[in-house]
Amino acid sequence: MATLMVPENLVYERPHSFTDAPTHYCPGCTHGVAHRLIAEVLEEMNLTERTIGVAPVGCAVFAYNYFDTDFVEAAHGRAPAMATGIKRCLPDHIVFTYQGDGDLASIGMGEIVHAAARGENITVIFINNANYGMTGGQMAPTTLPGMKTTSSPDGRDVETQGYPIRMAEMLATLDGAGYVVRRSLHDPANIRKAKKAIRTAFEVQERKLGFSMVELLSTCPSNWNLTPVESLKWLEEHMLPFYPLGDYKVAPAVAAAKI
């Protein structure tokens, strides 16, 4: 088998736009898959030397340790505002935020909505895993009705705790949004589609076609109390029906660009 391991036979290797650091994510958490897809896209588009990432508060707070690009660390929910400040001062650079559902859809709702409404030329990678991972699995704005979390121990009661928010659908209503889609990371086919969407989102920014966001349905095995493999199944059975995958906004200019 060793003779197979020669450069001409190489099919896949760790993206060079990653640093050497192992991630701090729990085993099987699909945050890592999302990171890897972004790294692959940055490398393929040759963007690492002019990209600035904006890390959130949440499990991905240390995202800046893993990408070989300049990075800043935002306050909880404020990544789109910080990205706005960076992008307005460096309009020809690529600026992306990486945010979880508590960060983006709860405490940062104002920032994300207005960044999209302004048509801010940034890319947002939004990880929806239906709970607050870092703080220990509390109820998130994306937690499904009836879903048990550490702050909805009897299951989310929509009568008292309200309903989950579908961010992609909501942001798609804004005229400033150029490209808003939802993808999932639960199987190889969907991971491929997710990567294609991430690539499109960065292309949209590169061509200055407005705000772009890829929402990624993601797993949280530790807080869901499931194995990584069971988590994929749970995502497929419970999250997909509530959060349908699809292209919620492809602005005419984006469609015309045929990315």
């Binding site: 306050a75 505002a81 400040g85 960076i86 460096l90």
Partner: peptide, 26 residues
């Protein structure tokens, strides 16, 4: 030059934060 009327002071100061990180006078 760059001007944004933010959605709130919270947004404004975090835009300043981002801009300051680039070395711009903000």
């Amino acid at each position: 030059r760059a001007f944004v009327q933010a959605e709130a002071e919270l947004g404004a100061i975090n835009m300043v934060y981002g801009a300051a990180c680039t070395g711009a006078r903000v």
